[in-house]
């Protein structure tokens, strides 16, 4: 071990990640080399004292300007998302209503028709509601949980297949 190697390895020596046999070598060198003892002390002090460096403080005027900007942008961003969600929800409702109308009128494509019939017979949430539709009852509103179930059929339509028979 010489001074150059010691300086190269100081970081690991101080953070405790050094292997034991290397540490012993370094300890041995430090014990007999004044320059390296001094280098170790000053390197360690540098490390400690530099932790006192303060990050630049934000000027008060900018802090308030930034706060106003951030609050406004967050609101804007959220309103954009809400608008998109509302539009997506309205579109989903419209599509489900369209599906139900076609179901009542027997205009669903063969695969959708099969899905609806199976769902009507097996789903506890939707069964009664769908049987009423078979009887021609037009619902005033579609309950939210039923809408969610039926909306999944929109995803299940095979690619290229038209959902409705003309």
């Amino acid at each position: 071990m010489n001074c150059k190697e010691l300086v190269y390895l100081l970081g690991e020596y101080l953070d405790g990640s050094m292997e034991e046999h290397l540490r012993k070598d370094l300890d041995g060198h430090i014990a007999m080399c004044d320059s390296c003892t001094n280098f170790l002390n000053t390197y360690d002090t540098t490390r400690i004292i530099c932790r006192q460096v303060q990050l630049s403080e934000i000027p008060e005027e900018f802090r308030e300007r930034l706060r106003t900007f951030v609050v406004a942008k967050a609101k804007e961003h959220h309103q954009g998302i809400e608008k998109y969600r509302r539009m997506a929800a309205e579109e989903q409702r419209r599509q489900v209503e369209e599906l139900l109308r076609a179901f009542r009128e027997g205009r669903l494509s063969s695969s959708l028709s099969l899905l609806f019939d199976t769902h009507r017979d097996r789903c506890e949430t939707c069964g009664e509601f769908l049987r009423a539709q078979n009887g021609g009852a037009v619902p005033e509103t579609i309950p939210r949980d039923i809408e969610e179930h039926l909306a999944e059929f929109l995803e299940a339509i095979p690619a290229g297949e038209e959902p409705f028979r003309t």
């Binding site: 010489n2 001074c3 150059k4 190697e5 300086v7 004044d34 320059s35 390296c36 003892t37 001094n38 280098f39 002390n41 000053t42 360690d44 002090t45 004292i49 006192q52």
Partner: peptide
């Protein structure tokens, strides 16, 4: 960066100013 002789020794003696700096913390 620290400078070393060909056989890896410090080219000049290193002084210990750590105590002085700690006092000025």
């Amino acid at each position: 960066m620290p400078v070393f002789t060909e056989d890896g020794m410090h080219t000049s003696p290193v002084e210990d100013w750590s105590k002085e700096v700690e006092r000025k913390m």
